[in-house]
Design a protein around this nucleic acid. Sequence first.
DNA 1: TTAGTATATAACTATCTACTTATATAATCA
DNA 2: TGATTATATAAGTAGATAGTTATATACTAA
Lengths: 114, 114
Amino acid sequence: MPQTSVEIVKASVVLKLLGDKTRLTIMKLIDNQACCVCEFVEIFQTSQPSISQHLRKLKDIGLVKEERRGQWIFYSVDKGNEYYPFIKPILDQLPNQEYKLKELEEKGTRISCC
Amino acid sequence: MPQTSVEIVKASVVLKLLGDKTRLTIMKLIDNQACCVCEFVEIFQTSQPSISQHLRKLKDIGLVKEERRGQWIFYSVDKGNEYYPFIKPILDQLPNQEYKLKELEEKGTRISCC
DNA sequence: TTAGTATATAACTATCTACTTATATAATCA
DNA sequence: TGATTATATAAGTAGATAGTTATATACTAA
């Protein structure tokens, strides 16, 4: 089976986006489930605009997609994106991050929406 | 066969390094051969200090190794590095960059050392 | 409609990054 | 030895980046 190939400048743009621990953790988290913005704010203990801006960058090149459910917006990895086959092996080598959601539940700070 | 796993903060550091088109192209080029600094300077049409600084960053986290041969220093990917299994699938999905060396030969600007 | 909640965007700022120029180090060769 | 070549390092700078605060937008529910 021939390897897929990604133009090298585009690849570097994608890798730069993944080269941030917040964005990389987000991508791993939502590779198998949708999460809403407020969860990320809790998990990363940072401001809501900061998370929004990270998500915006991921969305701009199509790595993630959003889905509004009432007043919440859920984000998940867009597996139909042209770069998904490129980043999949990267995500697969990262340790599962779902424990971060579990910690929120245990602390009781997991927001109502999720 | 269980997947290897790379701590997520370390992974983001490695990906940030690869998230630069010059460094990413260098990594792809030297995944299967050693190249000396002057070749990179020709290929990327940039200054020698700029290349040296990119190579320094790659060397600092162990992605590449150097080998002096007389007055020249050859760089190649350190396949024994702990992160190599992590980055290998990335490099494998990039188009071969050897044509850049061929272009140097055809232009006659490939330096004597190489 | 008004108040409250969730999210996005704008503007600003501190820090980081990649480059430049200048200089230092190291090897070769006459 | 001194001149030349290859590479590294230092210092400075312009532009990029990630965060902040303030505000706008969008939805829900009373």
